[in-house]
């Protein structure tokens, strides 16, 4: 997994509540057996019109969202289906960070496993950034080590994150490799219980 320490990037905002993973990556694209190449299908039904042309009304298609690497959305982002394809699609499309007041639990976990940083921010901060995006370009600096996001108007916002996951991301660790170091504990548990 790629290391994540600090990221500076521009924002795209989707000011909708309860964005489920069926929207992030619709079911017709779950038949592939690879982990790669899902970015082209991200928000497929919202991003593209019937003729497969970009819908100019959809925020990800705004000119200022073109190079966005930070996605900002409302409460309960990534609820619903467990499909990790949602995290793969966001990442493959170019996103490094997703910010929302709350997340679906499974999506939240899936993001960490892929080096996509999910950040919980209070609703009023998210609202402010969504409004700023509606008006123009917004740049954020996300510092995972310090657990701080700075906006381009000098606003400083701290965030909470589980130490375990923070460490995984900062060092780009392979979780399975680490857990395999606990094989003795696992074997002992199996002997005692089975």
């Amino acid at each position: 997994m790629e290391k994540f320490t600090t990221h500076v990037g521009t924002v795209a905002a989707l000011p909708y509540v309860n964005i489920d993973t069926d929207q992030i990556i619709p079911k017709q694209f779950l038949k592939r057996v690879e982990r790669t190449g899902f970015g082209q299908f991200l928000f497929y039904n919202w991003r593209l019109l019937e003729n497969d042309q970009p819908d100019p009304e959809f925020p990800l298609n705004y000119e200022r969202a073109k190079d966005a690497t930070i996605l900002v959305a409302d409460e309960n982002f990534g609820c619903g289906s467990s499909r990790e394809h949602a995290a793969w699609a966001l990442q493959d499309y170019g996103f490094k960070v997703v910010i929302a007041p709350s997340f679906g639990d499974i999506f939240y976990n899936n993001s960490f496993k892929n080096g996509l940083l999910p950040v919980r921010m209070p609703l009023e901060v998210v609202r402010n950034w969504e409004e700023r995006f509606e008006e123009g370009t917004l740049q954020l600096r996300v510092n995972l080590e310090e657990q701080v996001i700075e906006d381009d108007q000098g606003g400083i916002h701290t965030f909470d994150i589980d130490e375990y996951w923070k460490n995984m991301l900062i060092h780009g660790l392979d979780e399975i490799g680490l857990t395999l170091q606990y094989s003795d504990h696992i074997a002992k548990y199996e002997q005692a219980t089975q």
């Binding site: 467990s82 499909r83 976990n109 899936n110 399975i176």
Partner: peptide, 16 residues
């Protein structure tokens, strides 16, 4: 669980 966790369970029969 997601697919990375599926792989984790396959390899270790555990989850953090």
């Amino acid at each position: 669980i997601g697919t990375s966790e599926v792989e984790h369970v396959m390899a270790t029969q555990t989850l953090w």
